[in-house]
């Protein structure tokens, strides 16, 4: 009986663990936002702020094409963080382009937590 209970508890834990939201940390997101990564193709080092700026309530500018990027802060641009497919797409593209790999779930949660506070 005891063993069954233990097994049940363990299974429950295993089921729950991946679903437990890690503490999304806006401070870590803010630090990650301005962290610069060297580039292998001869471009200048990049961070999120290279294109989006350090003040998220202001528009940014694409480092290569120069196109204006609307502000990331939901406080001035309510469209931000409303479309999960869009969030996933841009995090995938931009992590690869800036960091050189896809971001892990914790990093993505931190970025989102930070953007939310802006």
């Amino acid at each position: 009986m005891k063993r069954h209970l233990a097994t049940a508890l363990l299974s429950a834990n295993l089921l729950i663990l991946p679903a437990i939201p890690w503490a999304a940390d806006p401070v870590a997101g803010a630090a990650g936002w301005i962290k610069e990564y060297p580039q292998t193709d001869g471009s200048k080092p990049r961070s999120c702020s290279t294109c989006h700026g350090r003040d998220l309530t202001q528009p940014g500018q694409h480092a290569k094409t120069g196109k204006v990027i609307e502000p990331m802060a939901p406080s001035v641009n309510p469209q931000r963080l409303t479309d999960s497919a869009k969030i996933e797409k841009w995090l995938r593209r931009n992590c690869r382009w800036t960091i050189g790999r896809e971001c892990n779930a914790a990093e993505k949660a931190d970025f989102i937590a930070y953007i939310k506070t802006q």
């Binding site: 193709d41 471009s43 290569k64 797409k89 995938r92 593209r93 931009n94 690869r96 382009w97």
Partner: peptide
């Protein structure tokens, strides 16, 4: 699209 003129423009 993954290396789109030096940018990542990958799509579903």
């Amino acid at each position: 699209l993954i290396n789109h003129y030096g940018d990542d423009a990958s799509l579903s």
